[in-house]
Design a binder for these strands. Structure first.
Lengths: 332, 332
DNA sequence: TTGAAAGCGCTAACAC
DNA sequence: GTGTTAGCGCTTTCAA
């Protein structure tokens, strides 16, 4: 079955193709009678306008892109990005667009997929992770007037970059408060130094932790390596001097949690600690130790990002350009 | 910066746009001199041909689609699909195409994303999971002459459906043999009955298990619920009658593994069993019990699927239409 | 309200 | 080898 063209539909309906086009685009200047006639034919022949041709005329693609950072291990360690994608897709489909996913691969001709998509205008708008918004990509987007939204708080020192992120300060705070509520009084937090410098979300989680700890009159205690756990736990001297025994450990990321669990294999201090981290993952309950979580509504994050993008694409006025999503303590 | 058109490049180079087009498409009938001249201008002005217009003329989109089955829980339980995607993308990019991902959502106008993409020819070819190849979608693909490849063995009773899958019989066999090598002599396999009827890969894994067990002169022992573990383990009578105590349990899927682990929370028989399943996942080593795995090269599966698709799209002759990928025992 | 025709950026058949 | 021209399927002036 070959696809029908607008011309064929026009012939079948005995009108000009411009008229069919008008019906297609809901133009007002058309008589109810011809509209009915044309619509009947379209339905009868299952006519679907060719979106490529349409795109050429409109200079639009009806496609939204999402660039995936393949160098970002977190993208694979947990369903993070996929939940975000789910949210994005929902909005994209609602807006009658399609969804072009790309990972930031380098193609032949030393051009990245990202660059190609932007330069070639293969999408009408783009969502990219903050890890990918470097100076170069930023300039590319600007140069090609490509609307975009960053998932994750913008870290580039530029004004007006639209972004959507989790409120990591709040997340750090409520997770800590939760542990305090559970009775913990000596709460450690594990934050890798170099990671904290690189990733703002770690700094933010630390900040939330500190706020909650200080407010409760407790002691801030940051460790920078699983090894530090050993020290804390074995130096009996300290404890006998009245220092409370650590009773909880917050890991700023899953990798750090896994690092601790790896380290644990050779030691065994974790059974005495409440473990906590951010962003639940499906099989957490099958792990050796129970783990406390902050639930993060990643689908919402995706939805917000996509909505912001469509607002920008539609050149709506006064678009909110930064959104922080609140988290909550998981139910189990 | 507005994009240059082929006409503008032609004017700048003082040639006809057809000539530029020839340079673009590597036509042979062109003098080295003009080619150089045109290429210089193109480079100088960073010219990138508009792929939409190109697509319209070529009747091609230079895009390959992947349809994601949102109802398939397995897609989220582990990085299965994402690894496959990684393989697909690599081949897609190598072939200078882009990658349109869609989940099988229903859009407005009661049309699925899948349907829309196929009917509207938004891609030149499509990879879909076998769970999505039903009668209706099959007919749609045929009707619109859309090249496609199925990931997972085709289960639709149709001839010539191209597919790529893991060799699950082989996987079942080597996993079982591995356990036998380790000294296990009473190996159970957990295969949910209804799942086995629905999913061929489960039947296949069972088959491989049976082959290995029989070959070793051992006893096939299929359980259909975690509860059966209890029975096996507690009926001391049986054992005293000379039946060997079960020493290994193969779970056909991760869900079943998790089911068993869930059930375990209330009991405690697993420490006596070697646990095994298919398809490793990143955080398996942090789980309560060590787990034996068959490693599955999912990236390879994606690559093979994409390569098969391009072969079909290019109308190559004698395309291999079904590929089974061998697995191996994981190194840890 | 409708039709005719130009144009979106590119390819390809046909001339020269 | 290169230019001319007619499409690809649709939108959008401009007339009628």
């Amino acid at each position: 079955m070959e696809k029908l063209t607008i011309q064929q539909i026009a012939d079948l309906a005995g009108v000009n193709k411009a008229t069919v086009s008008r019906v297609l685009n809901g133009s007002s200047s058309i008589s109810e009678k011809t509209r009915q006639k044309v619509e009947k034919i379209m339905k009868q022949y299952n006519y679907v306008p060719n979106s490529i041709a349409r795109g050429l005329a409109f200079k639009k693609t009806f496609t939204v892109g999402f660039c995936f950072d393949y160098t970002d291990k977190r993208a694979y360690a947990n369903p993070f990005f996929y939940k975000v994608l789910q949210g994005i897709e929902e909005i994209v489909y609602q807006n009658d667009h399609l969804f072009l996913m790309m990972s930031d691969h380098r193609l032949k001709k030393s051009k990245s997929t990202f660059e190609r998509v932007v330069v070639d205008h293969r999408v009408d708008g783009l969502i990219i992770p903050n890890t990918l918004l470097n100076e170069q990509n930023y300039n590319l987007l600007l140069k090609h007037k490509m609307p975009y939204v960053v998932s994750g708080e913008n870290m580039l020192p530029k004004e007006g970059v639209p972004w959507v992120d989790i409120d990591n300060v709040q997340a750090g705070r409520i997770l800590t408060e939760h542990l305090i509520d559970l009775g913990c009084r000596h709460i450690l937090i594990y934050a890798d130094k170099s990671a904290a410098e690189r990733d703002k979300f770690i700094t933010d989680r630390l900040k939330g932790y500190s706020e909650a700890i200080s407010k409760a009159g407790l002691e801030v205690n940051v460790i920078h390596s699983p090894e530090d756990l050993k020290a804390v736990n074995q130096e009996g001297d300290e404890r006998s001097e009245g220092l409370p025994e650590p009773d909880a450990l917050i890991c700023c990321t899953h990798e750090q949690l896994f690092e601790v669990l790896d380290w644990e294999l050779g030691h065994s201090v974790l059974s005495q600690l409440a473990l906590a981290t951010f962003d639940n993952f499906p099989i957490s309950r099958y792990m050796k130790y129970p783990i406390h979580f902050v639930e993060i509504d990643l689908e919402m994050m995706g939805k917000q990002a996509a909505q912001m993008l469509f607002a920008l694409m539609n050149k709506e006025e006064s678009v909110v350009r930064s959104i922080s999503i609140q988290t909550r303590i998981g139910s189990k």
